[in-house]
Design a protein around this nucleic acid. Structure first.
Lengths: 154, 154
DNA sequence: TATTGTTATACTCTATAACTATA
DNA sequence: TATAGTTATAGAGTATAACAATA
Protein backbone atom coordinates (compact mmCIF):
# COMPACT_ATOMS: atom_id res chain seq x y z
CA UNK A 1 0.00 0.00 0.00
CA UNK A 2 1.35 3.42 -0.97
CA UNK A 3 2.30 5.67 1.93
CA UNK A 4 1.02 9.17 2.41
CA UNK A 5 3.53 11.96 1.91
CA UNK A 6 3.19 12.92 5.56
CA UNK A 7 4.12 9.42 6.70
CA UNK A 8 7.16 9.42 4.46
CA UNK A 9 8.20 12.75 5.83
CA UNK A 10 7.77 11.57 9.40
CA UNK A 11 9.94 8.53 8.70
CA UNK A 12 12.65 10.33 6.82
CA UNK A 13 13.02 13.66 8.59
CA UNK A 14 16.40 13.29 10.27
CA UNK A 15 15.98 16.35 12.46
CA UNK A 16 12.92 15.63 14.56
CA UNK A 17 13.14 15.66 18.34
CA UNK A 18 10.24 13.23 18.53
CA UNK A 19 12.34 10.51 16.88
CA UNK A 20 15.02 10.64 19.55
CA UNK A 21 15.00 7.96 22.22
CA UNK A 22 16.70 10.31 24.68
CA UNK A 23 14.01 12.97 24.33
CA UNK A 24 11.16 10.51 24.72
CA UNK A 25 12.94 8.83 27.61
CA UNK A 26 13.22 12.14 29.43
CA UNK A 27 9.60 13.13 28.87
CA UNK A 28 8.38 9.69 29.93
CA UNK A 29 10.62 9.71 32.99
CA UNK A 30 9.24 13.07 34.13
CA UNK A 31 5.65 11.81 33.86
CA UNK A 32 6.36 8.64 35.83
CA UNK A 33 8.38 10.47 38.46
CA UNK A 34 5.64 13.07 39.04
CA UNK A 35 3.00 10.37 39.38
CA UNK A 36 5.30 8.48 41.77
CA UNK A 37 5.48 11.54 44.03
CA UNK A 38 1.71 11.89 44.01
CA UNK A 39 1.25 8.20 44.78
CA UNK A 40 3.58 8.35 47.79
CA UNK A 41 1.84 11.46 49.08
CA UNK A 42 2.71 14.72 50.81
CA UNK A 43 5.39 13.48 53.19
CA UNK A 44 6.01 10.16 51.50
CA UNK A 45 9.39 8.87 50.45
CA UNK A 46 11.08 10.39 47.42
CA UNK A 47 12.15 8.00 44.68
CA UNK A 48 15.78 7.94 45.76
CA UNK A 49 14.95 7.41 49.46
CA UNK A 50 12.52 4.68 48.46
CA UNK A 51 15.26 3.01 46.41
CA UNK A 52 17.73 3.20 49.29
CA UNK A 53 15.18 1.69 51.69
CA UNK A 54 14.39 -1.08 49.22
CA UNK A 55 18.05 -2.07 48.89
CA UNK A 56 18.61 -1.86 52.64
CA UNK A 57 15.65 -4.18 53.26
CA UNK A 58 16.85 -6.54 50.55
CA UNK A 59 20.49 -6.45 51.64
CA UNK A 60 20.59 -5.90 55.41
CA UNK A 61 23.99 -4.84 56.73
CA UNK A 62 24.90 -3.26 53.40
CA UNK A 63 27.47 -0.48 53.78
CA UNK A 64 26.92 3.07 52.56
CA UNK A 65 29.63 2.75 49.92
CA UNK A 66 28.06 -0.42 48.55
CA UNK A 67 24.63 1.17 48.55
CA UNK A 68 25.90 4.27 46.75
CA UNK A 69 27.53 2.09 44.09
CA UNK A 70 24.33 0.07 43.62
CA UNK A 71 22.30 3.25 43.27
CA UNK A 72 24.79 4.80 40.87
CA UNK A 73 25.43 7.90 42.99
CA UNK A 74 28.37 9.26 44.99
CA UNK A 75 28.96 8.28 48.61
CA UNK A 76 28.64 11.92 49.63
CA UNK A 77 25.16 12.11 48.15
CA UNK A 78 23.99 9.13 50.12
CA UNK A 79 24.57 10.73 53.51
CA UNK A 80 21.41 12.87 53.43
CA UNK A 81 19.38 9.91 52.19
CA UNK A 82 20.53 7.66 55.04
CA UNK A 83 20.06 10.57 57.46
CA UNK A 84 16.41 10.83 56.42
CA UNK A 85 15.84 7.09 56.74
CA UNK A 86 17.45 7.10 60.17
CA UNK A 87 15.37 10.12 61.27
CA UNK A 88 12.26 8.23 60.18
CA UNK A 89 13.54 5.28 62.26
CA UNK A 90 13.47 3.05 59.17
CA UNK A 91 17.09 1.95 59.62
CA UNK A 92 20.06 2.22 61.94
CA UNK A 93 23.72 2.82 61.31
CA UNK A 94 25.41 -0.05 63.09
CA UNK A 95 29.12 -0.47 63.82
CA UNK A 96 30.83 -3.38 62.08
CA UNK A 97 33.19 -5.48 64.23
CA UNK A 98 36.60 -5.67 62.59
CA UNK A 99 36.42 -2.42 60.59
CA UNK A 100 35.55 0.70 62.51
CA UNK A 101 35.41 2.84 59.38
CA UNK A 102 32.29 1.09 58.13
CA UNK A 103 28.67 1.65 59.10
CA UNK A 104 26.31 -1.23 58.30
CA UNK A 105 22.77 -0.21 57.46
CA UNK A 106 20.21 -2.31 59.33
CA UNK A 107 16.50 -1.93 58.53
CA UNK A 108 14.15 -1.73 61.52
CA UNK A 109 10.76 -3.43 61.74
CA UNK A 110 9.19 -0.04 61.09
CA UNK A 111 11.44 0.28 58.04
CA UNK A 112 10.32 -3.08 56.66
CA UNK A 113 6.68 -2.18 57.26
CA UNK A 114 7.16 1.23 55.64
CA UNK A 115 8.79 -0.38 52.62
CA UNK A 116 6.04 -2.96 52.32
CA UNK A 117 3.47 -0.17 52.43
CA UNK A 118 5.38 1.98 49.93
CA UNK A 119 5.99 -0.78 47.41
CA UNK A 120 2.24 -1.52 47.39
CA UNK A 121 1.54 2.11 46.59
CA UNK A 122 4.23 2.13 43.89
CA UNK A 123 2.83 -1.06 42.29
CA UNK A 124 -0.66 0.50 42.31
CA UNK A 125 0.73 3.70 40.78
CA UNK A 126 2.45 1.79 37.96
CA UNK A 127 -0.62 -0.39 37.36
CA UNK A 128 -2.73 2.73 37.06
CA UNK A 129 -0.26 4.71 34.98
CA UNK A 130 0.47 1.85 32.57
CA UNK A 131 -3.11 0.57 32.41
CA UNK A 132 -3.16 1.08 28.64
CA UNK A 133 -0.16 -1.21 28.17
CA UNK A 134 -0.46 -4.98 28.05
CA UNK A 135 1.62 -7.21 30.34
CA UNK A 136 3.68 -8.11 27.26
CA UNK A 137 4.31 -4.47 26.42
CA UNK A 138 5.41 -3.72 29.98
CA UNK A 139 7.77 -6.71 29.97
CA UNK A 140 9.19 -5.59 26.62
CA UNK A 141 9.69 -2.05 27.86
CA UNK A 142 11.40 -3.34 31.00
CA UNK A 143 13.78 -5.54 29.02
CA UNK A 144 14.65 -2.76 26.58
CA UNK A 145 15.37 -0.36 29.45
CA UNK A 146 17.57 -3.01 31.05
CA UNK A 147 19.38 -3.34 27.75
CA UNK A 148 20.25 0.36 27.91
CA UNK A 149 21.36 -0.14 31.50
CA UNK A 150 23.94 -2.66 30.34
CA UNK A 151 25.95 0.37 29.24
CA UNK A 152 26.08 1.49 32.88
CA UNK A 153 29.55 2.18 34.31
CA UNK A 154 30.65 -0.55 36.83
CA UNK B 1 9.36 -26.95 30.60
CA UNK B 2 9.68 -26.65 34.37
CA UNK B 3 11.07 -23.41 35.65
CA UNK B 4 13.98 -23.09 38.00
CA UNK B 5 13.17 -21.94 41.51
CA UNK B 6 15.23 -18.82 40.97
CA UNK B 7 13.21 -17.87 37.87
CA UNK B 8 9.98 -18.34 39.76
CA UNK B 9 11.26 -16.19 42.55
CA UNK B 10 12.33 -13.48 40.15
CA UNK B 11 8.89 -13.48 38.57
CA UNK B 12 6.91 -13.53 41.77
CA UNK B 13 8.83 -11.33 44.18
CA UNK B 14 6.54 -8.32 44.45
CA UNK B 15 9.08 -6.15 46.20
CA UNK B 16 11.98 -5.86 43.79
CA UNK B 17 13.14 -2.48 42.58
CA UNK B 18 14.45 -4.05 39.39
CA UNK B 19 10.92 -4.96 38.33
CA UNK B 20 9.72 -1.37 38.43
CA UNK B 21 9.43 0.50 35.16
CA UNK B 22 9.98 3.82 36.94
CA UNK B 23 13.28 2.72 38.45
CA UNK B 24 14.61 1.31 35.18
CA UNK B 25 13.37 4.37 33.32
CA UNK B 26 15.32 6.64 35.66
CA UNK B 27 18.53 4.63 35.47
CA UNK B 28 18.31 4.42 31.67
CA UNK B 29 17.56 8.14 31.40
CA UNK B 30 20.64 9.02 33.44
CA UNK B 31 22.88 6.92 31.19
CA UNK B 32 21.51 8.44 28.00
CA UNK B 33 21.64 11.97 29.38
CA UNK B 34 25.27 11.63 30.48
CA UNK B 35 26.27 10.27 27.08
CA UNK B 36 24.35 13.10 25.41
CA UNK B 37 26.41 15.66 27.34
CA UNK B 38 29.63 13.96 26.35
CA UNK B 39 28.57 13.80 22.70
CA UNK B 40 27.78 17.52 22.59
CA UNK B 41 31.09 18.35 24.23
CA UNK B 42 32.51 20.81 26.74
CA UNK B 43 30.57 23.91 25.78
CA UNK B 44 27.94 22.16 23.70
CA UNK B 45 24.21 22.63 24.12
CA UNK B 46 22.49 21.02 27.09
CA UNK B 47 19.55 18.74 26.34
CA UNK B 48 16.95 21.35 27.20
CA UNK B 49 18.65 24.10 25.14
CA UNK B 50 19.01 21.65 22.26
CA UNK B 51 15.29 20.87 22.49
CA UNK B 52 14.37 24.55 22.51
CA UNK B 53 16.56 25.21 19.48
CA UNK B 54 15.05 22.25 17.66
CA UNK B 55 11.50 23.48 18.20
CA UNK B 56 12.44 27.04 17.26
CA UNK B 57 13.97 25.83 14.00
CA UNK B 58 10.95 23.64 13.31
CA UNK B 59 8.41 26.30 14.29
CA UNK B 60 9.90 29.72 13.48
CA UNK B 61 8.05 32.62 15.14
CA UNK B 62 6.90 30.40 17.98
CA UNK B 63 6.25 32.37 21.18
CA UNK B 64 7.95 31.63 24.47
CA UNK B 65 4.69 30.54 26.07
CA UNK B 66 3.98 28.11 23.25
CA UNK B 67 7.53 26.77 23.43
CA UNK B 68 7.32 26.30 27.19
CA UNK B 69 4.05 24.39 26.82
CA UNK B 70 5.55 22.17 24.11
CA UNK B 71 8.58 21.44 26.27
CA UNK B 72 6.44 20.77 29.31
CA UNK B 73 8.11 23.40 31.50
CA UNK B 74 7.05 26.73 33.03
CA UNK B 75 7.39 30.00 31.12
CA UNK B 76 9.71 31.32 33.80
CA UNK B 77 12.11 28.46 33.25
CA UNK B 78 12.33 29.16 29.56
CA UNK B 79 13.81 32.63 29.97
CA UNK B 80 17.34 31.43 30.75
CA UNK B 81 17.18 28.93 27.89
CA UNK B 82 16.15 31.58 25.36
CA UNK B 83 18.74 33.96 26.85
CA UNK B 84 21.47 31.40 26.18
CA UNK B 85 20.29 30.79 22.61
CA UNK B 86 20.17 34.54 21.99
CA UNK B 87 23.65 35.03 23.48
CA UNK B 88 24.93 32.33 21.15
CA UNK B 89 23.21 34.25 18.32
CA UNK B 90 21.17 31.18 17.43
CA UNK B 91 17.85 33.02 17.60
CA UNK B 92 16.36 36.48 18.04
CA UNK B 93 13.45 37.72 20.10
CA UNK B 94 11.33 39.59 17.55
CA UNK B 95 8.38 41.87 18.26
CA UNK B 96 5.01 40.70 16.95
CA UNK B 97 2.84 43.33 15.23
CA UNK B 98 -0.57 43.49 16.86
CA UNK B 99 0.41 42.22 20.32
CA UNK B 100 3.28 43.96 22.02
CA UNK B 101 3.32 41.50 24.92
CA UNK B 102 4.57 38.69 22.73
CA UNK B 103 8.10 37.92 21.57
CA UNK B 104 8.39 35.65 18.54
CA UNK B 105 11.47 33.43 18.47
CA UNK B 106 13.20 33.52 15.10
CA UNK B 107 16.14 31.20 14.39
CA UNK B 108 19.18 32.73 12.72
CA UNK B 109 21.22 31.09 9.96
CA UNK B 110 23.86 30.35 12.58
CA UNK B 111 21.13 28.78 14.72
CA UNK B 112 20.01 26.51 11.90
CA UNK B 113 23.61 25.50 11.20
CA UNK B 114 24.24 24.85 14.90
CA UNK B 115 21.11 22.74 15.12
CA UNK B 116 22.06 20.77 12.03
CA UNK B 117 25.47 20.13 13.52
CA UNK B 118 24.07 19.20 16.93
CA UNK B 119 21.42 16.83 15.63
CA UNK B 120 24.13 14.95 13.70
CA UNK B 121 26.11 14.51 16.88
CA UNK B 122 23.00 13.43 18.77
CA UNK B 123 22.12 10.86 16.09
CA UNK B 124 25.67 9.53 16.22
CA UNK B 125 25.52 9.35 20.01
CA UNK B 126 22.25 7.39 19.94
CA UNK B 127 23.53 5.08 17.18
CA UNK B 128 26.60 4.34 19.28
CA UNK B 129 24.78 4.00 22.58
CA UNK B 130 22.03 1.79 21.18
CA UNK B 131 24.29 -0.24 18.89
CA UNK B 132 23.25 -3.46 20.62
CA UNK B 133 19.59 -2.84 19.84
CA UNK B 134 18.03 -3.70 16.49
CA UNK B 135 16.09 -1.13 14.49
CA UNK B 136 12.93 -2.99 15.49
CA UNK B 137 13.83 -2.83 19.15
CA UNK B 138 14.50 0.90 18.95
CA UNK B 139 11.19 1.49 17.18
CA UNK B 140 9.39 -0.58 19.81
CA UNK B 141 11.06 1.32 22.63
CA UNK B 142 10.16 4.61 21.00
CA UNK B 143 6.51 3.66 20.61
CA UNK B 144 6.26 2.38 24.20
CA UNK B 145 7.77 5.61 25.52
CA UNK B 146 5.31 7.59 23.42
CA UNK B 147 2.53 5.51 24.92
CA UNK B 148 3.60 6.66 28.38
CA UNK B 149 3.71 10.21 27.08
CA UNK B 150 0.02 9.99 26.17
CA UNK B 151 -0.59 10.46 29.89
CA UNK B 152 1.09 13.87 29.63
CA UNK B 153 -0.91 16.85 30.93
CA UNK B 154 -2.11 19.08 28.02
C1' DT C 1 48.79 4.88 51.00
C1' DA C 2 43.92 3.68 50.53
C1' DT C 3 39.14 3.59 52.09
C1' DT C 4 34.69 5.03 54.77
C1' DG C 5 31.85 8.26 56.05
C1' DT C 6 31.33 13.07 56.22
C1' DT C 7 31.09 18.20 55.26
C1' DA C 8 31.28 22.20 52.37
C1' DT C 9 30.29 23.92 48.22
C1' DA C 10 28.54 24.62 43.67
C1' DC C 11 25.90 23.58 39.66
C1' DT C 12 21.71 22.08 36.92
C1' DC C 13 16.97 21.85 36.46
C1' DT C 14 12.67 23.05 37.94
C1' DA C 15 8.63 25.32 40.35
C1' DT C 16 6.10 29.18 42.72
C1' DA C 17 5.00 33.71 43.37
C1' DA C 18 5.07 38.26 42.27
C1' DC C 19 5.99 42.08 39.13
C1' DT C 20 5.42 45.01 34.39
C1' DA C 21 3.46 45.94 30.32
C1' DT C 22 0.30 45.09 27.67
C1' DA C 23 -4.42 43.27 26.11
C1' DT D 1 -9.41 40.76 34.50
C1' DA D 2 -6.27 38.00 31.88
C1' DT D 3 -1.93 37.06 29.41
C1' DA D 4 3.38 37.27 27.98
C1' DG D 5 7.55 37.77 29.53
C1' DT D 6 10.41 38.49 33.41
C1' DT D 7 12.71 38.36 38.07
C1' DA D 8 13.59 36.57 42.59
C1' DT D 9 13.76 32.80 45.21
C1' DA D 10 13.82 28.18 46.84
C1' DG D 11 14.11 23.29 46.58
C1' DA D 12 15.54 18.81 44.63
C1' DG D 13 19.31 16.09 43.09
C1' DT D 14 23.86 15.61 41.96
C1' DA D 15 29.09 16.11 41.71
C1' DT D 16 33.80 17.51 43.32
C1' DA D 17 37.09 18.27 46.66
C1' DA D 18 38.76 18.00 51.03
C1' DC D 19 38.88 16.18 55.78
C1' DA D 20 39.15 12.85 60.01
C1' DA D 21 39.26 8.32 61.43
C1' DT D 22 40.70 3.98 60.38
C1' DA D 23 42.80 0.33 57.72
Amino acid sequence: MAKHAVDLEAELDPSDLEDLIGYNLKRAYIIVQKDFRQALGQDGLSARVFSALSLTVKFPNITQSELARMMGIERSGLVAIVDELEERSYLQRAPVPGDRRVQALVPTDAGRRAYSDAISKVRAHEDMLFADMTADERATLLSLLKKIRQDEPQ
